[in-house]
Computed example of a mutant assay.
Amino acid sequence: MAYSKLNNPRAFPGNSNYGMSLRDYFAGQALAGDMADDGLPNDASPALLEERAQLYYRLADAMLKVRTAEEALTNTTAMMGMSV
């Protein structure tokens, strides 16, 4: 997925272009949820940690994809005078 400011904006927009992207925020939330559920063993291998990190970013990518599709649907129906 190619990222741009349109489909991966700042998580906490304001007057600054700095800070966490929405993709990073989604990945962090997936991580937090996973850790709250069962966590990882203290002796987790670097390979396991990297695998989990990749999973969290794949989840974030899926969330951004659905978000973009939902926004497109909402914008299309709004232009047609319909509500969703």
Rank of each mutant, 00 (worst) to 15 (best):
M80I: 06
N42G: 15
L6S: 10
N15R: 15
P9Y: 06
R10Q: 03
A62K: 10
A11M: 03
E50M: 12
E71V: 04
M80S: 11
M82T: 00
T76F: 05
R10L: 07
N8C: 14
M80D: 13
A72S: 14
L49S: 08
S83R: 15
G81A: 12
G33L: 01
P13F: 13
A32K: 02
G19D: 04
L59I: 13
R23E: 09
E70H: 00
A27D: 02
L40W: 11
A2Y: 04
P41G: 10
A53W: 06
D43F: 11
M80C: 08
V84C: 01
S45G: 02
D38E: 15
A47D: 06
F12P: 15
A27I: 01
M79R: 13
D43L: 09
R67V: 13
E70G: 05
L49A: 10
A72L: 10
N8E: 11
V66L: 12
R52V: 07
S83G: 15
R10S: 01
G28Y: 00
L31V: 01
L55R: 08
T68E: 10
N8F: 09
A60N: 01
S45E: 03
N15I: 14
G28Q: 05
P41R: 13
A30R: 10
E50I: 07
M80R: 11
G81T: 07
N75H: 06
D37Q: 09
A30S: 12
A62S: 15
L31M: 07
P9K: 05
L49Y: 00
L55P: 03
T68M: 08
M35Y: 10
A60R: 00
N17Y: 04
S21Y: 06
P9N: 06
L55K: 09
D37M: 05
E50A: 14
Q54Y: 03
V66D: 15
N75A: 09
